[in-house]
Design a protein around this nucleic acid. Structure first.
Lengths: 341, 341
DNA sequence: CGCCCTCATGGAAACGATTCCATCATGTTT
DNA sequence: AAACATGATGGAATCGTTTCCATGAGGGCG
């Protein structure tokens, strides 16, 4: 393992000064023959400028940080994939961290990014406010993806148009004749729950608070929420699950309780995943453009000049969702009266 | 946005030299009262040492690179999660890239890592040899995960014990009475195919080469492979799918062709994913410890001293797989004679 | 009492790049 | 032809840290 070839080696090989090499390589002015000599020397020595040296001097890393709750969740994986794609196109490295939706863990990761000198971050925030205070104080350019954190109206965000997605789903179910529709909410989904309530109200239907339940982002909690919902309220006829995890839990719980989909209960899941098509029956979903959200967020964070970001409150970018009708929704009927577990 | 607080600020605030601050902060020797003063000053100024400066001086980044074909695939997502967890425990940042299993793209990402000064990489290699030559030449410490690249016997690897997993699955199917078992192989799965052949031979069964087919790691290709297999060989009674993608394709194709699982055809998938339990019927799988593979690989790459890695050929670490019997395998019977598509 | 060893400490070099600035050569204008 | 503008070029400072080395103080032992 030899020592790395540095700009000095190239300069020597080309018979010029280091300043000239730097200029040539970063597109500055130089005479054609000098440029050629430098380029030849660099190629021959297989020279790669060290990002370390450059960044130290430039006082900016250029890399982009990526924080997601859980890379194992297909939704965040797709967001991450979008960020990765955009960063790649821009030639920027991505430093990644998983927060587990835990503010403390989030703080740690942010601290690590700060230490690394990263100055741009795309994050799916856990929702807590504290972890982000040091970040903005340090001048980090932050863009939130898929979620927003309260109290940070000045941080740009790229999200799914949840209101519209939920509204479409509710209208679809109501159109099918459903009246007692439940909402299985997840972490950081205040928007969706609100949209759910609003749409019901707008349609002149009562909002039954008992039909709005929440699960933590863990399989057991999601399952408990779904199962509890089905057992407590056998009269419900449709469920909207707020995430693929909750959708999974709902399918499992329904199966466990011998509820047939869509005969006994209709199901819509927020998030499209490959297995939605494999289910029996295939799941009707509200598909958010997860990858595009990541891509857009990365674009935004790369375009925002460093140091900007504070200032005028920025309205979140909303990406359109799509209702994909498959086979998990049937006509709404009276039930519960006939069924007793 | 103020200028970053540097070690110099801390030194001034504590009334000592920068060298002393550095020593205190990195655990060197110092008198108790000095140590205290420095620590107090650092805390009060909220000082974070810049990784840039440190790494430049130390000539090593400390970060670990992570290369996966596709972060969207649940298997690689779990591997990545393991790496992330281990890196976090060690306080190391992770720079991540997706290769798409394309050697050229892989080369690009490796180049980027090299430029960043990353000196440790965990990778699921695409299989091509060329991209890794510059990496080892530059003294990169590489650990392969989940796959191995031919010609790099001296690079350590952490993999699932595919031979044993496949053997168990084949024995299970043969025990159920199956004789015409197909294998849907994926990219970089030579080991599995070989194990498949070997086990059949060991059990005294003929190896029908027509029953061993391959799909590229894309949904359409996987589906084409599965569908083609079912249509060309209606006499097969069981299929082992080499990845979750191929398993998905097999389920879909079987459904499309009106083949009932497990009555018409039995199915085993290599890789356990959450939706395997949601399928109708739930899928029997060979579960590789994906997360552990990632974790172990990261441990290994962190433990290996830089510059090592070349030298004695290292035997890959094999992680045990588990056959999880659910509902997708039935008794093997003669079919194909009765069925004509 | 003196010498030497140990230990704390700070100055300064080094890492690899960028960039300011001075220098020098060439070409242009009056 | 002289003065000036323009452009190429290299030296040196700089970014923030670690680490080598020198210095000085203090304590133990001969």
């Amino acid at each position: 393992m030899r020592a790395r070839t540095t700009i000095k080696d190239v300069a020597e090989a080309a018979g010029v000064g280091v300043a000239t090499v730097s200029r040539v390589l970063s597109g500055g002015s130089a005479s054609p023959q000098t440029r050629e000599r430098v380029l030849a020397a660099a190629a021959q020595l297989d020279y790669r400028p060290s990002a370390l040296g450059r960044n130290l001097r430039r006082q900016r890393t250029g890399g982009i940080g990526l924080l997601v709750p859980d890379i194992t969740d297909p939704f965040y994986a797709r967001v991450a994939d979008g960020v990765l794609a955009c960063a790649r196109a821009a030639g920027e490295p991505v430093i990644m961290g998983a927060t587990g939706d835990d503010p403390e863990s989030e703080s740690e990761v942010i601290g690590m990014l700060l230490e690394q000198g990263v100055d741009r971050v795309v994050a799916v925030p856990s929702g807590a406010t504290e972890p982000w205070a040091p970040a903005v104080r340090a001048g980090l350019t932050v863009v939130f993806a898929a979620r927003h954190a309260v109290g940070f109206d000045d941080i740009p965000a790229v999200m799914a148009d949840e209101r519209s997605g939920i509204r479409t789903a509710v209208e679809y179910l109501v159109g099918l004749g459903h009246r007692r529709i439940a909402h299985l909410g997840g972490h950081g989904q205040g928007q969706r729950t609100a949209a759910f309530r609003d749409t019901l109200t707008a349609l002149g239907l009562p909002v039954d608070e008992e039909l709005i339940v929440f699960g933590r982002p863990a399989r057991d909690s999601a399952y408990a929420a779904a199962s509890g919902l089905f057992q407590n309220r056998p009269d419900l006829t449709a469920v909207i699950a707020g995430s693929n995890l909750l959708g999974e839990a709902a399918v499992l719980a329904a199966h466990e309780l011998d509820l047939r989909v869509p005969r006994d209960v209709s199901l819509i899941m927020f998030d499209d995943v490959p297995w939605a098509e494999l289910c029996a029956p295939p799941l009707t979903v509200i598909a958010p453009p997860a990858r595009d959200i990541g891509y857009r967020a990365a674009e935004l964070v790369l375009r925002t000049p460093p140091g900007r970001g504070r200032g005028g409150r920025s309205r979140p970018v909303k990406m359109p969702t799509e209702l994909i009708v498959r086979g998990s929704c049937g006509p709404g009927r009276q039930r519960g009266a006939t069924r007793r577990s």
